[in-house]
Design a protein around this nucleic acid. Sequence first.
DNA 1: ATCTGTCCCTGGACGC
DNA 2: TGCGTCCAGGGACAGA
Length: 291
Amino acid sequence: MPELPEVEVTRRKLSPLLVGRRIAKVHTTRPSYFFLTPPAELERALPGARVVGLARIGKYLLAGFDDGRRLLLHLGMSGQLFTEHASSVRLLSAATRASLAPDEQARFRPDVHTHLRLEFEDDGPELLFRDVRKFGKVRLLAPGQSDPRLDKLGTDALAATGAELFAATRKRRVAVKSVLLAQEVIAGIGNIYADEALYLAKLRPKRAAGRLTRAECDTLIAAAQQVLLRSIETGGSSISDYLAPDGSDGAYQDERHVYARTGEPCFGCGLAIKRIVIGARGTHYCPRCQR
DNA sequence: ATCTGTCCCTGGACGC
DNA sequence: TGCGTCCAGGGACAGA
């Protein structure tokens, strides 16, 4: 699932492939939850726009155009943003793969889940946005237009401080894990990195946020940033659907300490990693190392 | 104000 | 083998 590191890796790899290019034609699927801007409007309004930059805010990507408009993108749970040259088995379902010859199983073909296809005026590769579960989002913003989703985001996780977390959590009774996932407090952390950060900080996910000391807030933010930066270095986590724009997988899933390791031994003490549910999200921790 | 539960969606895992 | 059922989860929203 794409969180800050996956979105940042996508931004870094996509930026040189996108900036400077002018959109020629747009293909979409039918109107759905996925399209905050109706697909017909994207098809009409995007051709002619030249990309001048690609920014990230929390888990959102913002492509800027030469006329001041911006395209807001969110990868949701299963979003994949890649070029037509990308090659990966993650681009096809198991059933589709099974029906193909082995040497055909990694090649991408636009399918019913490929909701956005951008062709450019040059001869370079198309850009594709595929999202099986359709929790992703696309919205075209007029020059100067804001979006409530962006406006309410808290400080980006890479820039957040312990002092901010401490201030935001006073008198709050919710689990600290829930606060880490709240994008209006700190933007960019999702389920994997929340669990990993809490493990590194040796904190129980269920601890009431308001009972964290100032020092614990410092430790937790430092742990979160360590985990996020390391994941960016390794190309993010490719646990289910995520892949980079060139089709490559990240490697951070191999460095996980707790996420989806239920029942396996803690690397610190050997005790079995436990799984509980907090705020309808699976939560993994070591009952001995995290207090 | 804060918190909890529900919903959106689909493929894959699992059980019989 | 094949079918049905359950589960994953980011974020918006309704209701307590």
